[in-house]
Design a protein around this nucleic acid. Structure first.
Lengths: 111, 111
DNA sequence: CCAGAATACCTAGCTATGCTATATATCAAA
DNA sequence: TTTGATATATAGCATAGCTAGGTATTCTGG
């Protein structure tokens, strides 16, 4: 992505599920929303986003539905499933634990 | 590792540099220290640690030195270089930015 | 004294996943 | 009509953590 390089690994799904859990969204919209909500920090690449969505669809975490706009445009909307909700809870907790542990190392209390 | 699975990617070097910057350490000690300081959260595998140390040595971020103990044991002590210090500063900032951005997505302010 | 645990280091190969680059198609604006 | 934005998709690459194996020494309990 261009932050720490690999920092994103492992949190991609959590970020996507977090967004989708608020309301169904389509891919392009997700990219824009992630950028907006993170104040420009996240700039998801298509080669990251779509494979991730497909993975999660295969895994039953999200389900997809094509919708055609009046003008003919096609969009694939993703919504979270019950299973996806559960995974999201788990991953949220994992993130909390991980971030806490990293901060313990990076900002240690006096030995 | 077994947290988020891949969460660690991208923060390994930062964690290692953080530790080593406080004082020179050898590999086995680093594993123990990471576990202790993170209250048991981090359990670095050797297949993660040693390749990472070697990478950073090649990259000039750390330098290594063998030391023989009175009892004959051999340990390879790693210390941080000037270059490693600079990289650490950068990576610390990257982590801050990343964690902040993730939290913005995971705990969004009301739309 | 001996077995097993702990200490201490190393690496080949696997796997997961983010990124690059490319492809396709529609629509609006200059 | 050409450019940029919208919208989705994927093959192939690179990176890096993990598995599982190896070597060698020292400490500890029975």
């Amino acid at each position: 992505m261009n932050y720490g390089r690999e920092l994103l690994k492992g949190s991609t799904d959590t970020l996507l599920l977090s967004l989708i859990s608020r309301q169904p969204m389509y891919g392009y919209q997700i990219i824009k929303e992630l950028a907006a909500r993170s104040q420009g920090y996240f700039k998801f690449k298509e080669g990251t986003l779509y494979p991730a969505l497909h993975r999660m669809e295969r895994g039953g975490l999200v389900k997809a539905q094509w919708r055609r706009l009046p003008n003919g445009q096609e969009r694939r909307y993703y919504s979270i499933t019950a299973k996806g909700q559960k995974v999201l809870e788990t991953k949220r907790a994992e993130w909390q634990g991980f971030a806490t542990a990293v901060n313990l190392i990076m900002s240690p209390r006096p030995t």
